[in-house]
Protein backbone atom coordinates (compact mmCIF):
# COMPACT_ATOMS: atom_id res chain seq x y z
CA UNK A 1 0.00 0.00 0.00
CA UNK A 2 1.09 3.55 -0.70
CA UNK A 3 1.97 5.83 2.17
CA UNK A 4 -0.71 8.28 3.10
CA UNK A 5 -0.50 11.27 0.84
CA UNK A 6 -2.09 14.67 0.64
CA UNK A 7 -3.96 16.38 -2.16
CA UNK A 8 -2.80 19.90 -2.93
CA UNK A 9 -5.09 22.05 -5.02
CA UNK A 10 -3.17 25.10 -6.22
CA UNK A 11 -4.98 28.06 -7.83
CA UNK A 12 -7.18 25.75 -9.87
CA UNK A 13 -9.71 27.24 -12.28
CA UNK A 14 -11.72 25.65 -15.04
CA UNK A 15 -13.35 27.45 -17.91
CA UNK A 16 -15.48 25.68 -20.50
CA UNK A 17 -15.90 26.92 -24.02
CA UNK A 18 -19.60 26.67 -24.74
CA UNK A 19 -20.70 27.64 -28.24
CA UNK A 20 -18.04 30.31 -28.63
CA UNK A 21 -18.71 31.83 -25.20
CA UNK A 22 -16.56 31.15 -22.15
CA UNK A 23 -18.17 29.64 -19.09
CA UNK A 24 -16.17 30.19 -15.95
CA UNK A 25 -17.19 27.11 -13.98
CA UNK A 26 -14.73 26.86 -11.13
CA UNK A 27 -12.23 28.62 -8.94
CA UNK A 28 -9.71 29.88 -8.27
CA UNK A 29 -9.40 27.32 -5.51
CA UNK A 30 -6.40 26.61 -3.32
CA UNK A 31 -6.57 24.12 -0.51
CA UNK A 32 -4.59 21.20 0.87
CA UNK A 33 -6.42 18.05 1.95
CA UNK A 34 -4.64 16.25 4.76
CA UNK A 35 -3.38 12.71 4.20
CA UNK A 36 -5.60 9.94 5.50
CA UNK A 37 -8.54 12.26 6.16
CA UNK A 38 -11.95 12.52 4.59
CA UNK A 39 -12.91 15.91 3.24
CA UNK A 40 -16.52 16.57 2.31
CA UNK A 41 -17.36 19.20 -0.27
CA UNK A 42 -20.84 20.72 -0.30
CA UNK A 43 -22.07 23.41 -2.61
CA UNK A 44 -25.01 24.39 -4.78
CA UNK A 45 -25.65 22.42 -7.90
CA UNK A 46 -23.62 23.59 -10.90
CA UNK A 47 -20.87 25.21 -8.80
CA UNK A 48 -18.15 22.99 -10.24
CA UNK A 49 -17.89 20.17 -7.68
CA UNK A 50 -17.83 17.39 -10.26
CA UNK A 51 -15.42 19.40 -12.37
CA UNK A 52 -13.07 19.71 -9.39
CA UNK A 53 -13.32 16.00 -8.68
CA UNK A 54 -12.58 15.09 -12.29
CA UNK A 55 -9.52 17.34 -12.20
CA UNK A 56 -8.35 15.67 -8.98
CA UNK A 57 -8.76 12.27 -10.62
CA UNK A 58 -6.78 13.32 -13.71
CA UNK A 59 -9.88 12.93 -15.88
CA UNK A 60 -9.98 16.62 -16.80
CA UNK A 61 -7.37 19.37 -16.93
CA UNK A 62 -7.60 22.66 -15.06
CA UNK A 63 -7.58 25.81 -17.20
CA UNK A 64 -4.99 27.20 -14.81
CA UNK A 65 -3.30 26.00 -11.64
CA UNK A 66 -2.65 22.39 -10.79
CA UNK A 67 -3.54 19.52 -8.48
CA UNK A 68 -0.82 17.46 -6.81
CA UNK A 69 -1.62 13.98 -5.54
CA UNK A 70 1.12 13.04 -3.10
CA UNK A 71 3.39 15.50 -4.86
CA UNK A 72 2.63 14.24 -8.38
CA UNK A 73 0.58 16.26 -10.85
CA UNK A 74 -2.78 14.57 -11.26
CA UNK A 75 -3.00 13.14 -14.74
CA UNK A 76 -4.69 10.39 -16.66
CA UNK A 77 -3.15 6.93 -16.43
CA UNK A 78 -2.22 7.31 -12.77
CA UNK A 79 -3.10 4.33 -10.63
CA UNK A 80 -3.80 4.47 -6.93
CA UNK A 81 -7.00 6.44 -7.35
CA UNK A 82 -10.45 5.02 -6.70
CA UNK A 83 -13.44 6.93 -8.06
CA UNK A 84 -17.10 6.43 -7.19
CA UNK A 85 -19.48 8.31 -9.43
CA UNK A 86 -23.06 9.35 -8.89
CA UNK A 87 -24.23 6.58 -11.18
CA UNK A 88 -22.83 3.20 -10.20
CA UNK A 89 -21.51 2.65 -13.76
CA UNK A 90 -21.33 -1.13 -13.42
CA UNK A 91 -20.71 -3.05 -16.63
CA UNK A 92 -23.77 -5.09 -17.55
CA UNK A 93 -21.67 -7.68 -19.37
CA UNK A 94 -19.76 -8.67 -16.25
CA UNK A 95 -21.08 -10.28 -13.14
CA UNK A 96 -20.71 -8.53 -9.79
CA UNK A 97 -17.35 -10.08 -8.90
CA UNK A 98 -15.86 -9.39 -12.33
CA UNK A 99 -17.02 -5.80 -12.08
CA UNK A 100 -15.13 -5.42 -8.83
CA UNK A 101 -12.06 -7.08 -10.35
CA UNK A 102 -11.87 -4.64 -13.27
CA UNK A 103 -9.15 -2.35 -11.83
CA UNK A 104 -6.96 -5.33 -10.88
CA UNK A 105 -7.24 -6.62 -14.46
CA UNK A 106 -6.45 -3.27 -16.05
CA UNK A 107 -3.45 -2.83 -13.76
CA UNK A 108 -2.21 -6.41 -14.26
CA UNK A 109 -2.31 -7.27 -10.59
CA UNK A 110 -2.35 -10.73 -9.05
CA UNK A 111 -5.90 -11.87 -9.75
CA UNK A 112 -6.04 -14.57 -7.08
CA UNK A 113 -5.23 -12.05 -4.40
CA UNK A 114 -7.57 -9.47 -5.91
CA UNK A 115 -10.35 -12.04 -5.96
CA UNK A 116 -10.15 -12.79 -2.26
CA UNK A 117 -10.00 -9.09 -1.46
CA UNK A 118 -13.00 -8.46 -3.73
CA UNK A 119 -15.02 -11.15 -1.99
CA UNK A 120 -14.05 -9.77 1.40
CA UNK A 121 -15.08 -6.23 0.43
CA UNK A 122 -18.38 -7.46 -0.96
CA UNK A 123 -19.01 -9.36 2.26
CA UNK A 124 -18.20 -6.35 4.43
CA UNK A 125 -20.52 -4.25 2.31
CA UNK A 126 -23.30 -6.78 2.77
CA UNK A 127 -23.48 -8.03 -0.83
CA UNK A 128 -21.24 -11.09 -0.47
CA UNK A 129 -24.04 -13.43 -1.54
CA UNK A 130 -24.42 -11.61 -4.84
CA UNK A 131 -20.85 -11.99 -6.14
CA UNK A 132 -21.94 -14.29 -8.97
CA UNK A 133 -25.11 -12.38 -9.85
CA UNK A 134 -25.53 -9.97 -12.74
CA UNK A 135 -25.64 -6.25 -11.96
CA UNK A 136 -29.21 -5.86 -13.20
CA UNK A 137 -30.41 -8.31 -10.58
CA UNK A 138 -29.37 -5.91 -7.81
CA UNK A 139 -31.15 -2.91 -6.28
CA UNK A 140 -29.73 0.60 -6.63
CA UNK A 141 -28.20 0.55 -3.15
CA UNK A 142 -26.59 -2.83 -3.74
CA UNK A 143 -25.19 -1.71 -7.09
CA UNK A 144 -23.60 1.35 -5.51
CA UNK A 145 -22.00 -0.88 -2.85
CA UNK A 146 -20.47 -2.93 -5.65
CA UNK A 147 -19.15 0.29 -7.19
CA UNK A 148 -17.57 1.20 -3.85
CA UNK A 149 -15.95 -2.24 -3.60
CA UNK A 150 -14.57 -1.74 -7.12
CA UNK A 151 -13.09 1.65 -6.20
CA UNK A 152 -11.48 0.22 -3.06
CA UNK A 153 -10.19 -3.02 -4.56
CA UNK A 154 -6.61 -1.93 -5.20
CA UNK A 155 -6.25 -0.06 -1.88
CA UNK A 156 -6.20 3.36 -3.50
CA UNK A 157 -4.23 6.11 -1.79
CA UNK A 158 -7.00 8.47 -2.94
CA UNK A 159 -10.72 7.79 -2.88
CA UNK A 160 -12.80 10.31 -4.81
CA UNK A 161 -16.58 10.13 -4.49
CA UNK A 162 -18.98 12.32 -6.48
CA UNK A 163 -22.41 12.30 -4.84
CA UNK A 164 -22.25 8.52 -4.52
CA UNK A 165 -25.47 8.16 -2.56
CA UNK A 166 -27.64 10.84 -4.11
CA UNK A 167 -29.66 8.41 -6.21
CA UNK A 168 -30.60 6.34 -3.15
CA UNK A 169 -33.52 6.66 -0.76
CA UNK A 170 -32.94 8.22 2.67
CA UNK A 171 -32.82 4.98 4.65
CA UNK A 172 -30.39 3.36 2.24
CA UNK A 173 -28.22 6.48 2.33
CA UNK A 174 -27.86 6.31 6.11
CA UNK A 175 -26.93 2.65 5.90
CA UNK A 176 -24.41 3.33 3.12
CA UNK A 177 -22.74 5.97 5.25
CA UNK A 178 -22.21 3.48 8.06
CA UNK A 179 -20.89 0.87 5.61
CA UNK A 180 -18.56 3.35 3.97
CA UNK A 181 -16.94 4.17 7.33
CA UNK A 182 -16.34 0.48 7.86
CA UNK A 183 -14.50 -0.18 4.59
CA UNK A 184 -12.95 3.20 4.00
CA UNK A 185 -9.62 2.35 5.55
CA UNK A 186 -9.65 5.46 7.72
CA UNK A 187 -6.21 6.88 8.29
CA UNK A 188 -4.76 5.21 5.17
CA UNK A 189 -6.77 6.65 2.33
CA UNK A 190 -7.17 10.32 1.57
CA UNK A 191 -10.83 10.68 0.66
CA UNK A 192 -12.97 13.34 -0.95
CA UNK A 193 -16.74 13.11 -0.67
CA UNK A 194 -18.93 15.40 -2.70
CA UNK A 195 -22.46 15.48 -1.41
CA UNK A 196 -25.46 17.76 -1.32
CA UNK A 197 -26.60 16.34 2.01
CA UNK A 198 -25.33 18.50 4.86
CA UNK A 199 -25.77 15.82 7.58
CA UNK A 200 -24.01 13.27 5.37
CA UNK A 201 -21.07 15.64 4.88
CA UNK A 202 -20.65 16.13 8.62
CA UNK A 203 -21.28 12.50 9.51
CA UNK A 204 -18.67 11.07 7.17
CA UNK A 205 -15.91 13.66 7.13
CA UNK A 206 -13.10 15.18 9.15
CA UNK A 207 -13.56 18.48 7.41
CA UNK A 208 -16.23 20.15 5.33
CA UNK A 209 -15.52 22.63 2.54
CA UNK A 210 -18.48 24.80 1.64
CA UNK A 211 -18.46 26.10 -1.92
CA UNK A 212 -20.13 29.17 -3.40
CA UNK A 213 -22.31 29.19 -6.48
CA UNK A 214 -20.66 29.21 -9.91
CA UNK A 215 -17.80 29.90 -10.31
CA UNK A 216 -17.27 27.69 -7.28
CA UNK A 217 -14.93 29.02 -4.60
CA UNK A 218 -14.42 27.97 -1.01
CA UNK A 219 -16.74 29.92 1.30
CA UNK A 220 -15.98 28.12 4.53
CA UNK A 221 -13.68 25.44 5.84
CA UNK A 222 -15.09 23.61 8.84
CA UNK A 223 -13.18 21.03 10.87
CA UNK A 224 -15.30 18.12 12.12
CA UNK A 225 -13.70 16.82 15.32
CA UNK A 226 -16.19 14.12 16.20
CA UNK A 227 -14.92 10.78 17.50
CA UNK A 228 -14.91 7.69 15.24
CA UNK A 229 -16.45 5.27 14.67
CA UNK A 230 -19.58 7.34 14.52
CA UNK A 231 -22.98 5.81 15.24
CA UNK A 232 -26.06 7.10 13.42
CA UNK A 233 -27.35 8.46 16.76
CA UNK A 234 -24.54 11.01 16.64
CA UNK A 235 -26.79 13.03 14.36
CA UNK A 236 -28.96 14.03 17.31
CA UNK A 237 -26.06 15.30 19.39
CA UNK A 238 -25.68 19.08 19.84
CA UNK A 239 -22.10 19.12 18.48
CA UNK A 240 -23.38 17.57 15.30
CA UNK A 241 -26.34 19.85 14.82
CA UNK A 242 -24.19 22.88 15.55
CA UNK A 243 -22.02 21.94 12.58
CA UNK A 244 -24.92 21.28 10.24
CA UNK A 245 -26.47 24.60 11.26
CA UNK A 246 -23.26 26.44 10.45
CA UNK A 247 -23.19 24.94 6.96
CA UNK A 248 -26.85 25.52 6.34
CA UNK A 249 -26.41 29.19 7.23
CA UNK A 250 -24.17 29.70 4.23
CA UNK A 251 -26.79 28.39 1.90
CA UNK A 252 -29.55 30.39 3.51
CA UNK A 253 -27.48 33.55 3.23
CA UNK A 254 -26.71 33.00 -0.44
CA UNK A 255 -30.32 32.13 -1.17
CA UNK A 256 -29.63 28.55 -2.22
CA UNK A 257 -31.72 27.34 0.67
CA UNK A 258 -34.79 29.21 1.78
CA UNK A 259 -36.31 28.25 5.08
Amino acid sequence: MLNTQDIRIEDVTRTYGVRGAELHALGPISVTLEPGKTTAIVGPSGCGKSTLLRIMGGLDRPSSGRVLLGGQVAKEGTTGIGVVFQRDLLLDWRNVLDNVLLPAQLQHRDLGQARSRALMLLRELGVGDFAMRQPWELSGGMRQRVAIARALLCDPAFLLMDEPFSALDALTRDQMGVLLQRVQNAGQTTSVLITHSIPEAVFLSDRVLVMSGRPGMILDDIPVDLPRPRPLSLRDEPEFTALTRRIRMHFERTGVLTA
Binding site: G77, T79, L91, L102, Q107
Partner: peptide, 26 residues
Amino acid sequence: ADPELLLVTRSMGGTTWQTLRAIRLP
Protein backbone atom coordinates in the same frame (compact mmCIF):
# COMPACT_ATOMS: atom_id res chain seq x y z
CA ALA B 1 -20.64 3.59 -25.51
CA ASP B 2 -21.88 5.62 -22.55
CA PRO B 3 -19.27 8.40 -22.12
CA GLU B 4 -19.46 8.05 -18.35
CA LEU B 5 -18.60 4.37 -18.61
CA LEU B 6 -15.44 5.38 -20.45
CA LEU B 7 -14.47 7.39 -17.36
CA VAL B 8 -14.47 4.18 -15.33
CA THR B 9 -11.53 2.56 -17.10
CA ARG B 10 -9.78 5.91 -17.52
CA SER B 11 -9.96 6.52 -13.77
CA MET B 12 -8.31 3.15 -13.21
CA GLY B 13 -5.35 3.99 -15.39
CA GLY B 14 -6.66 1.89 -18.29
CA THR B 15 -5.13 2.36 -21.74
CA THR B 16 -7.06 3.18 -24.90
CA TRP B 17 -6.78 -0.44 -25.97
CA GLN B 18 -8.06 -1.68 -22.58
CA THR B 19 -10.97 0.74 -22.79
CA LEU B 20 -11.78 -0.60 -26.25
CA ARG B 21 -11.81 -4.16 -24.99
CA ALA B 22 -13.53 -3.61 -21.66
CA ILE B 23 -16.09 -0.95 -22.61
CA ARG B 24 -16.38 -0.03 -26.27
CA LEU B 25 -16.58 -3.49 -27.82
CA PRO B 26 -19.10 -4.94 -25.35
